[in-house]
Structure formats: structure tokens, C-alpha cells
């Protein structure tokens, strides 16, 4: 898809570039820059997380001990399993991308369905973890940071899950996504990888460091 769009864009602006069904009704089609725009957007999003991570590291640096004295022990089993699930789901969602590039819509549905299930398990795992923790939002600075950072990330997982479910809904029609036109698939996949990478850093910062 990327290739076809790029070549079209250098050739002409004035003639129809994108023959995507539904865009053709006499409307002059514009070149498709959605993936580029999404990457720029994810760059901006990563700055929110970077800002929050830097704030967390500063809090950590100015405290004499971290987590502060008296913070209850953290359980590593559930978040550990959760991390493995989320990392594996990034590979699973990539299989969907490979499938649609071979025009295999059934494969797309299978792999996206699996990713959605893994994402849902991750969120449930996080809810389970929240309900079993021995500290609350206001216990101390570590606890507040823990809830706000994992919660903000969880919100992103939830949004990614919605994107994946949206793609699945659209993929119920065989002809909606094809080898040449599957921006939705690519966008959901990119977003999911982003959420995954953020989680890896978050896990290192909050649980291991």
C-alpha cells in the first residue's frame, strides 16, 4: 500500500490517485498520507509518556529510598504474565498484517481476533492486580505514580483494543480490506506496537528498577 501511494503521489496530484472503493464518485482524490500522519501522532503521544517517565524518574531521584519506606511488596507474577501476553500479542498482530498482504481476509480475522483476546486478558489482568494491591491511589508518591502511569497506559490499551475491534467489524465483509487497501489494519497494528513498547518501558520503571 505504502509503495503504491508513494509512486502515485510523485506522479500526479490532479488525477484520481486513490481508486479505493467509495472514494471514486467523481471526487478528486487526494494522496493518502494517513500512515505518515499516524506516525507523527504517535511521536507526539510518546512525548506525553516521556514527560511522565521523566517526572517519575525525578521523583525517584529526590527520594532517599524508592519505593518510599512502608510501600507494601509488589506481586510480580500477574504483571509478569501480563507482560508476556502483551509482548506476544505484538507478534500475533503482525501475522494479521502478513495475512492481509496476501489477500487472506480469514487470516486477518483470526489473528486480529486473537490479538483482541490477548489485549482483553491484559486489561482483565490489570483490573485483577489493582483489586489485589495493598496500596491505594493516595498511599504515597510511588503508589500515585503507579496507578496514574499504569492507568494511563491501560487507557491506551483500551483504545487499541477498540481499534482492533473496529477493524474486525469492518473485516466481516470480505471485500473491505485487500492487499492494496488496508490502512485500518496497518494503523491498528502500529498503534498496538506503540502501546506494547510503552508497556515494556513502564514495566522496567515501575516493577523492576
Amino acid at each position: 500500500m505504502q509503495g503504491s501511494v508513494d509512486s502515485a503521489e510523485t506522479l500526479n496530484y490532479g488525477t484520481a490517485v486513490d481508486s479505493h472503493s467509495g472514494h471514486a464518485e467523481g471526487h478528486e482524490a487526494h494522496p493518502d498520507h494517513r500512515i505518515f500522519g499516524l506516525i507523527v501522532f504517535l511521536g507526539a503521544e510518546s512525548m506525553i509518556f516521556l514527560g511522565l517517565f521523566m517526572a517519575y524518574l525525578t521523583f525517584r531521584a529526590v527520594y532517599p529510598s524508592w519505593p518510599p519506606e512502608g510501600t507494601p511488596e509488589r506481586e510480580l507474577l500477574v504483571p509478569g504474565i501480563n507482560t508476556l501476553i502483551l509482548i506476544s500479542s505484538s507478534f500475533v498482530i503482525h501475522k494479521a498484517d502478513v495475512a492481509i498482504k496476501k489477500n487472506d481476509v480469514a487470516g486477518l480475522r483470526t489473528w486480529f481476533g486473537l490479538t483482541a483476546a490477548m489485549g482483553a486478558i491484559f486489561l482483565l489482568g490489570q483490573v485483577y492486580e489493582y483489586s489485589n494491591l495493598e496500596f491505594g491511589l493516595k498511599t504515597n508518591l510511588y503508589a500515585s505514580s503507579f496507578y496514574v502511569l499504569t492507568g494511563f497506559h491501560g487507557l491506551h490499551v483500551f483504545l487499541g483494543l477498540c481499534l482492533i475491534l473496529g477493524v474486525l467489524w469492518r473485516a466481516r465483509k470480505r471485500e473491505h480490506y485487500s492487499e492494496a487497501h488496508h490502512f485500518g489494519v496497518e494503523a491498528a497494528e502500529l498503534y498496538w506496537h506503540f502501546v506494547d513498547v510503552v508497556w515494556i518501558i513502564l514495566f522496567l520503571l515501575l516493577y523492576l528498577l
Binding site: 511521536g43 507526539a44 512525548m47 506525553i48 517526572a55
Partner: peptide
């Protein structure tokens, strides 16, 4: 805008909490 504004959003999020 793309590099700076998100960091302000992060600060406002924490300030809001």
C-alpha cells in the same frame, strides 16, 4: 508543537489528579 505540547498535557494530567 508536537514535541512540547504533549509534555504539558502530562503535567496537566498530574496537576489535575
Amino acid at each position: 508543537i508536537l514535541i512540547g505540547t504533549p509534555v504539558l498535557a502530562g503535567a496537566l494530567l498530574l496537576l489535575g489528579f
